[in-house]
Amino acid sequence: MSREVVFGHSPDSDDAFMYYGIASGNISLKGYEISHLMEDIESLNLRSEKGELAVTAISVAHYPKVSHNYQIMNCGSSVGRNYGPILVSKNYKKLEELKGKKIAIPGHFTTSYMLFQIFIEIECEVEFMHFESIINSIKNGKVDAGVLLHEGQILFQKDGLTKISDLGELWHENTGLPIPLGVDLVNRKFDEKTRKDLTTVFYKSVKYGIENEDAALKYAMQFGRDLSFEEARKFVRMYVNSDTLSLGAEGRDAILKLFNLAFEKNIINQKPVIDIMHPKY
């Protein structure tokens, strides 16, 4: 009898793309029935605090709060190399113009907000909201600016918005490292062999998607937002690539650097141990 395990991921094109190998039935794990739960990343961040899911995507910034429940997998990370979440506005073009203004942030526990706190040193009013609401909130004047992630990073100009700052670029200028924005975790309630098996099946799913890109994109676009096929390809390649197959030593160093900077700025009060679960290759 198969044992059911649930993988949690966001409905974004890149996350759905990674899951395609499993969803299509081409990748499986003997003795297990894998199902998936799709929620926005902030909901997954909060759910991870309860340790409910076998495997889940989260914002890497939230890992200090859940490291007792989960171990980071070497595969599945969404990594930006000199790009990342962007700060945009309709009416303002320079950072100093946002002093005292209201800025929308896509969740308190997101890496976007951690990077914002580290690098954006202006007095402003922060409003947390669902990431899908941010563009319209800027356009209708509810907020003066906002931090965009996911597909908004390549669609903002279509909505008449101006990029003021790229938090991924600021990160790279200051550290020289890539920025892991999201990671996938495996639950520590499983023994080491099972954690490795779950990590391996997800690695194989990511690899299958990369090797069967068009089919994986067609699947992923069911969940994406307002992207053409080629826009979806561009976005997915930004965050599903060799870094996704292997976080590697550089990715681990980047996570440690992020938490060191957050600790120095009193954003977090303790730094977690970073122990990585590797798949069987």
Results as ranks from 00 to 15, higher is better:
195 R>F: 03
185 L>H: 04
185 L>M: 07
218 K>C: 04
191 D>E: 09
223 F>D: 05
134 I>E: 02
123 E>K: 14
199 T>C: 15
192 E>S: 10
172 H>N: 15
208 Y>W: 08
188 R>K: 15
139 K>R: 12
175 T>M: 07
217 L>E: 05
201 V>K: 07
182 G>L: 03
131 F>G: 00
122 I>Y: 12
189 K>Y: 09
197 D>I: 02
140 N>V: 08
138 I>V: 09
219 Y>W: 12
165 S>I: 13
138 I>L: 02
218 K>G: 00
137 S>V: 01
142 K>T: 10
170 L>E: 14
133 S>C: 00
141 G>Y: 02
143 V>A: 10
211 E>W: 13
132 E>M: 11
211 E>I: 12
134 I>R: 00
143 V>G: 08
214 D>C: 01
131 F>K: 07
202 F>D: 02
192 E>H: 05
170 L>W: 09
163 K>I: 13
208 Y>H: 12
128 F>S: 10
145 A>T: 10
210 I>A: 05
174 N>S: 15
211 E>C: 14
133 S>Q: 08
164 I>T: 12
197 D>A: 11
191 D>L: 01
193 K>G: 09
198 L>E: 04
182 G>I: 00
208 Y>P: 01
213 E>L: 09
195 R>Y: 01
149 L>F: 04
122 I>G: 13
121 E>S: 09
222 Q>G: 12
151 E>N: 10
141 G>V: 04
195 R>I: 03
191 D>A: 02
132 E>Y: 10
179 I>S: 11
137 S>N: 11
196 K>H: 13
190 F>K: 01
214 D>W: 03
154 I>W: 04
195 R>W: 01
223 F>W: 14
195 R>N: 06
163 K>M: 15
131 F>T: 00
208 Y>N: 06
181 L>G: 15
146 G>W: 02
200 T>N: 09
163 K>D: 02
211 E>F: 13
182 G>V: 00
216 A>M: 13
216 A>L: 13
203 Y>R: 05
190 F>M: 05
214 D>H: 05
206 V>E: 00
153 Q>L: 10
187 N>E: 08
193 K>P: 08
145 A>V: 08
176 G>I: 06
178 P>I: 06
157 Q>Y: 06
131 F>L: 06
173 E>Y: 06
202 F>P: 01
181 L>M: 15
152 G>Q: 11
217 L>C: 09
129 M>K: 08
200 T>C: 11
131 F>V: 04
136 N>A: 07
160 G>R: 12
201 V>C: 08
152 G>V: 12
149 L>D: 05
182 G>D: 03
213 E>A: 06
131 F>C: 01
192 E>K: 13
194 T>D: 03
127 E>M: 07
174 N>D: 14
142 K>E: 06
214 D>F: 03
186 V>T: 02
126 V>Q: 02
201 V>I: 14
224 G>E: 11
205 S>V: 08
137 S>F: 01
152 G>I: 13
187 N>A: 07
148 L>Q: 09
170 L>I: 08
165 S>R: 11
